[in-house]
């Protein structure tokens, strides 16, 4: 079966623009905001959100990345994972941290990323923004900002492609069984 495109580049941009507005509306501006993306694609989405917020409010919100790898609950169950960028630009004590990821699925990555954040300080609150929520949560975790809800079966895979990493902007749904890539 051919991959099904569920969001194109324009769709991604519109969703991010809406999320940027929602973040500002919910938090009444940019004060105390910190945006932290989960690498690899969550980090690039975080940078895009930072730009959109700057276009709207004229403020450059501190933005960085939070790598959940060392906090995962499947360490030792699969092969050793490469570490990614950990870059917390300012102290998160008392801040409103918006974590950003591309796809929300089981919720386990978000749990690990939150534990990582706790080691860096005590945020006033943590909010979650995702481009795609595909369901099938295994932990009690819910996103505050969702680009698009995409109902899927567990046998399907959702891939977000971003210009910065993949050269194209799109979200596709593939049958995992037929996915030849490793």
């Amino acid at each position: 079966m051919k991959p099904r495109v569920v969001m194109d580049g324009k769709g991604i941009e519109r969703a991010l623009a809406r999320i940027a507005h929602e973040i500002l509306e919910r938090n009444k501006g940019t004060e105390d905001l910190v945006i932290l993306g989960i690498p690899t694609r969550g980090y690039h989405l975080a940078i895009r959100l930072q730009r959109k917020i700057e276009e709207i409010e004229g403020v450059r919100v501190p933005t960085g990345s939070v790598d959940a790898t060392l906090y995962r609950d499947d360490i030792g169950l699969k092969e050793t994972q490469p570490l990614k960028k950990m870059e917390i630009p300012i102290s998160i004590d008392g801040k409103v941290v918006v974590m950003v990821d591309d796809v929300l699925y089981t919720g386990r990555t978000i749990r690990a990323a939150m534990n990582a954040l706790m080691d860096f300080g005590r945020a006033f609150c943590i909010q979650l923004a995702v481009l795609v929520d595909r369901g099938h949560r295994e932990l009690p975790i819910k996103a505050d900002y969702v680009g698009k809800n995409i109902p899927t079966s567990r046998r399907e895979g959702v891939k977000v492609h971003l210009e910065e990493v993949d050269g194209t902007n799109e979200v596709i749904v593939i049958q995992e069984d037929e996915d030849a890539s490793p």
């Binding site: 790598d67 060392l70 906090y71 360490i75 490469p82 570490l83 534990n115 080691d119 860096f120 300080g121």
Partner: peptide
Amino acid sequence: LSTAASFKEVSTREIKKVPTL
């Protein structure tokens, strides 16, 4: 070497510990 570069950051934190192992 590249893995060590990532771990160097851990030792600069106030909580110099990760739960990995």
